[in-house]
């Protein structure tokens, strides 16, 4: 029973994303859901830091963007033949950059950490305009070709993205359930106690930071192939903010919540965007509602649902310690 419960989200995940192909709602929607899974990976990767380790990075766009730019630039500089390898290199590049940024920013805590990660991301965003020859400046990079087997029809790339994202998310899932994942989850709750378990908080945070950046970079690389174009907006602060939004809306305390959040955010943008330019305002309203009604996010509803927990807290249970 417990086993089934742990795997239920996986079943829903496969049924939904593969079922989509059976329903076949047309290229527009398959493209839309492609974005959902890629953002989903970005958000789940981010949530390893945010929901699990308790580090509010406001600069995750940097790693997403670095992954995208490395992949895009490599394709442009060589040939699309090695596209898949370039996504991997994009992720490695993002991880490499994150190591040094983590080294510096993780010395700070709370809002100072958040602001410094934002500052670094904005710095690199600014750099993309200066390094026009490599990055295409304002225009970004266009016409990023894919290898033959992935081009022609949106379904092929959808399947490819789904495969890559699934592998990545599976790895992140395993990490979350490992001893290392338990340490990260406990750092969020009580870093002082972690130190006095004989563990180095900073080193563990740094590892989480690099792993999170690696998979955010992979998501960025995937996105470069989706439309065949990338642009500086991917590095801009709203992209960092979106990671926080997706995780918060979906449920930062759950593993799959951020994917749901990615779906909600993308869906809102799609629906509301048709009627008004002020869709980001509507997103703000939705976030407000979610935060007020479900402080633990959409997937976290169950956890706060019943008042059972609260009642239990009031009548403390006394154990028979010391026999």
């Amino acid at each position: 029973m417990k086993k089934i419960k742990a795997y239920l989200p996986w079943i829903v995940y496969f049924v939904f994303f593969l079922g989509l192909l059976v329903v076949n709602p047309g290229t527009h929607y398959i493209h839309l859901v492609s974005r959902v899974i890629i953002f989903g990976l970005y958000a789940v990767a981010f949530n390893l830091l945010y929901g699990t380790t308790g580090l509010v990075s406001f600069g995750h766009a940097l790693f997403y963007g670095v992954g995208a730019y490395i992949t895009g630039m490599l394709v442009k500089a060589t040939s699309p033949e090695f596209f898949v390898l370039y996504i991997l290199l994009g992720a490695v590049g993002a991880a490499f950059v994150s190591f040094f940024i983590g080294l510096l920013t993780l010395r700070l805590t709370g809002i100072y950490f958040t602001m410094l990660t934002l500052a670094f991301a904005q710095l690199v965003w600014g750099l993309t305009f200066k390094l026009y020859n490599f990055t295409g400046g304002d225009d970004g990079i266009q016409a990023i070709a894919k290898p033959e087997i992935l081009s022609g029809g949106v379904t092929k790339y959808y399947l490819f993205s789904f495969a890559v994202v699934t592998i990545c998310i599976y790895v992140l899932w395993r990490i979350r359930r490992s001893p290392f994942g338990a340490v990260l989850n406990s750092i969020r709750q009580n870093p002082q106690r972690i130190t006095f378990l004989g563990l180095n908080v900073y080193k563990n945070q740094l590892k989480a930071f690099v792993i999170s950046a690696f998979f955010a970079g992979a998501a960025g690389g995937l996105y470069a192939g989706l439309d065949g174009s990338i642009h500086p907006d991917m590095l801009h602060w709203p992209t960092s903010g979106n990671a926080i939004l997706m995780a918060t809306i979906g449920g930062m305390g759950t593993f799959f919540g951020p994917i749901v959040g990615a779906g909600i955010l993308t869906g809102l943008e799609e629906i509301v965007g048709k009627y008004t330019e002020y869709w980001s305002f509507c997103i703000g309203v939705v976030v407000l509602i979610v935060v007020l009604l479900f402080p633990n996010g959409v997937l976290g509803i169950k956890k706060i649902g019943g008042s059972k927990n609260n009642e239990e807290k009031e009548t403390e249970v006394v154990c028979n310690s010391g026999d």
């Binding site: 395993r174 990490i175 359930r177 490992s178 001893p179 290392f180 994942g181 338990a182 340490v183 406990s186 378990l197 004989g198 563990l199």
Partner: peptide, 18 residues
Amino acid sequence: YLAALSHFRKNAKVFINR
């Protein structure tokens, strides 16, 4: 259990169920 993982130096294992 977390303290026990630390005690047996299993805390850094990344891919095994805790």
